[in-house]
Nucleic acid binder design. Structure first.
Length: 482
RNA sequence: GGCCCCGUGGUCAAGCGGCCUAAGACACCGCCCUUUCACGGCGGUAACCCGGGUUCGAGUCCCGGCGGGGUCACCA
């Protein structure tokens, strides 16, 4: 059996679309699962869209996620170059070979003529298809035009009758009427190959055995196969992947600002969580497992379990999964990642970040939500007395006032301001007063945090705030209660 | 519009003719734990697009309709 070789062939646009990351992931998983090679090829033939540093974005994303390629522009390989712009000169001879074989032909129709005819067809509500006009040119006529330097393109001569069919690894048997096939351009007027042509040549030359790509290629695949057949090359296996959607009607798009890998990383999603979640949109292991390391994914991956219906990218579920990953992170790693987010609102406050991180880790869903969660530590928020009301804690503004007056002197008397002391001393005072824990602790927490939900209880918050700030806030809140 | 693909709860998704009075996860709701929230535990609401077949029996097979997506470039 020949070695399995898959490839990921992105255009360097400067951004990695999540759909692309998933395609790369599946291609990587498939290759590794089968002990094969994963190849990276940069398709940068579109010089107009060239973006500085764009290939680095691709490298960084793939590497960051743990998808190491066996062959590629930077690591080399036996089938290079792996950058399409460096392969420019390779394609024309192949197209000429096809012309000699009668599978392709020169076409001298100008773009203007074609546009006109296309417009006319559309006006009549018809689908425009090239009419093979130049196929009928005699050898002499062709040579004459060639000699005269008339601009030309090379087109594939597609059959017009019968049907083309192939078996996709995920969609199964797919057939198309040949009458729908248009004689696609292989070589453009500038001598450069079209994307589709270059793709076939490159894939063959690089020994790609399995082509994993988006399902938008489902209907152009018959033309690809025609090329392989004309050359007498072996047709690779096709694994067409469903589209990742934003909702039932729309693909994930850059316009919505949530289509790129980097968007999520910047917000504070962990790449492991992103990869894990992405793997599950359109694929499942066949059992109830949901959490996978890259190695586990490789082990579990099976093309047979790829879905045929498109999946919606559910940020809510991704967020849940991200929170799970964060909760299981190594504490020091969490502290390091969280620190810049703590700094956004607490820089220079001398806050105990370690303790804060301990309290925050199990509550962090996405890192960018941290500032809003801890802003109250930097500045006392405005709040209404109604916050003191809590039925279960048997508390309201009046009770709050009484109980705050009770604990204020107790807290002022605490010498060593650490959590244990605050806890022990305040609890003892509550015990002595005969009051309910909740009736005292609930208003205490409100009085020093100004909000109903906080990452931690009254003692933790009081400790983080420090004695001076805690007392100051208690007095202010008490004053407000009149 | 032609052609192609797809159609199980709000979302992901199991199901491959009887084990389905349809799993699991997210979300949502309730309860428990708890000085709040979160975590955790327990429970609940919620689906086979519609219509015809085939069959003793259909979510599962076939046909049609409807709905959604894709594709019809000298773009990649």
């Amino acid at each position: 059996m020949t070695e399995v070789r898959t490839r990921f062939a992105p255009s360097p646009t400067g951004f990695m679309h999540l759909g692309g990351v998933r395609t790369a992931l599946y291609a990587y998983l498939f290759a590794k699962k089968n002990g094969g090679k994963f190849i990276l090829r940069i398709e940068d033939t579109d010089q107009e869209r060239f973006v500085e540093g764009a290939t680095e974005v691709i490298y960084d994303t793939l590497k960051g996620c743990g998808m190491d390629w066996d062959e590629g522009p930077d690591v080399g390989g036996d089938y290079g170059p792996y950058v399409q712009s460096e392969r420019k000169h390779m394609y024309l001879p192949y197209a000429q070979e096809l012309v000699e074989k009668g599978a392709a032909y020169y076409c001298f129709c100008t773009k203007e003529e074609l546009d006109e005819r296309r417009a006319a067809a559309e006006a009549k509500g018809e689908v425009f298809k090239y009419d093979k006009h130049c196929l009928n040119l005699s050898k002499e006529e062709i040579q004459e035009k060639l000699d005269a330097g008339t601009p030309y393109v090379i087109r594939l001569n597609c059959p017009t009758e019968g049907e083309s069919a192939y078996d996709d690894e995920v969609f199964g048997h797919i057939s198309f009427p040949n009458s729908d096939l248009d004689d696609m351009v292989l070589i453009k007027q500038d001598g450069m190959p079209t994307y589709n042509f270059a793709n076939v040549i490159d894939d063959h030359l690089m020994g790609i055995t399995h082509v994993l790509r988006g399902m938008e290629y489902l209907s152009s695949t018959p033309k690809y196969n025609l090329l392989y057949k004309a050359f007498g090359w072996e047709i690779p296996k096709y694994v067409h992947l469903t589209t990742v959607m934003r909702d039932a009607q729309h693909k994930l798009s850059k316009r919505d600002g949530d289509a790129y890998y980097s968007d999520f990383i910047e917000k504070g999603y962990l790449k492991e969580a992103l990869i894990n979640y992405l793997a599950l949109v359109g694929w499942n292991p066949g059992d109830d497992r949901e959490f996978f390391t890259m190695d586990e994914l490789i082990d579990a991956f099976d093309v047979k379990r790829l879905n045929t219906s498109p999946g919606i990218f559910d940020v809510t579920k991704l967020t849940w999964m991200n929170a799970q990953y964060i909760a299981k992170m190594d504490f020091d790693a969490y502290l390091e990642m969280a620190t810049p987010w703590f700094d956004k609102v607490l820089a220079g406050k001398g806050m105990d970040y370690k303790r804060l991180a301990e309290l925050m880790q199990s509550r962090t869903e996405v890192f960018n939500r941290i500032p809003d969660m801890i802003r109250f530590l930097a500045e006392m928020p405005e709040f209404s007395d109604e916050l003191y009301f809590h039925k279960k804690m048997k508390c309201d503004a009046q009770v709050a006032k009484e109980n705050l007056q009770l604990v204020l002197p107790v807290m002022e008397g605490i010498e060593k301001w650490n959590e244990q002391n605050i806890h022990d001393i305040v609890m003892a005072a509550i015990q002595e007063s005969g009051k309910k824990n909740g009736a005292v602790l609930w208003p205490l927490r409100i009085a020093i945090s100004g909000q109903a939900n906080t990452p931690g209880g009254a003692f933790e918050i009081a400790y983080l705030l420090g004695k001076d700030e805690t007392i100051r806030r208690m007095k202010d809140s008490l004053a407000k209660l009149g």
